[in-house]
């Protein structure tokens, strides 16, 4: 139970999802990737529109609690999280409405090396 007089502190502290992990990130900034094309019945943070799409790693966020596992009662299973850029044309083809890109935070298990496709 969170007591009333601890609420302000709890809100100002938050619940960071960053975790230390032993492994090194597999991808480097600048690398091209392709997202996986698996259809899960369970929770995932890989939006449907970004499945099986080519993108570029533009940032590394550290390892974060893996939402897919955490939602399924499997514990935190922290994994490397990247900022990935998808050019609008790659996502939408001719349906894109001009020069642009979508940026997503994607866990390593969503990503295949650009050559694996």
């Amino acid at each position: 139970m969170l007591p009333k007089d601890m609420v302000a502190v709890a809100v100002a502290t938050g619940a960071p999802s960053l975790r230390p992990v032993e492994t090194s990130p597999r991808f480097q900034v600048g690398e091209t990737i392709r997202t996986i094309n698996d259809t899960f019945a369970t929770h995932t943070r890989l939006p449907g529109y970004a499945r099986d799409k080519p993108g570029t790693i533009v940032g590394y966020e550290g390892a974060h609690v893996f939402a897919d596992a955490h939602a399924a009662g499997q514990g935190e299973c922290p994994d490397h999280l990247y900022c990935v850029r998808f050019d609008s044309k790659s996502l939408w083809g001719k349906g894109s409405d001009g020069s642009g890109a979508v940026y997503l935070s994607l866990w390593e298990s969503y990503l295949l090396a650009g050559d694996d496709q």
């Binding site: 999802s17 890989l46 966020e61 609690v65 900022c83 020069s99 642009g100 994607l106």
Partner: peptide, 17 residues
């Protein structure tokens, strides 16, 4: 209105960032 020569970047807050 965003001119055609300007890039639009959409950040989708899909994880905890």
């Amino acid at each position: 209105q965003i001119s055609d020569d300007r890039e639009v970047r959409v950040y989708d807050s899909n994880a905890e960032i």
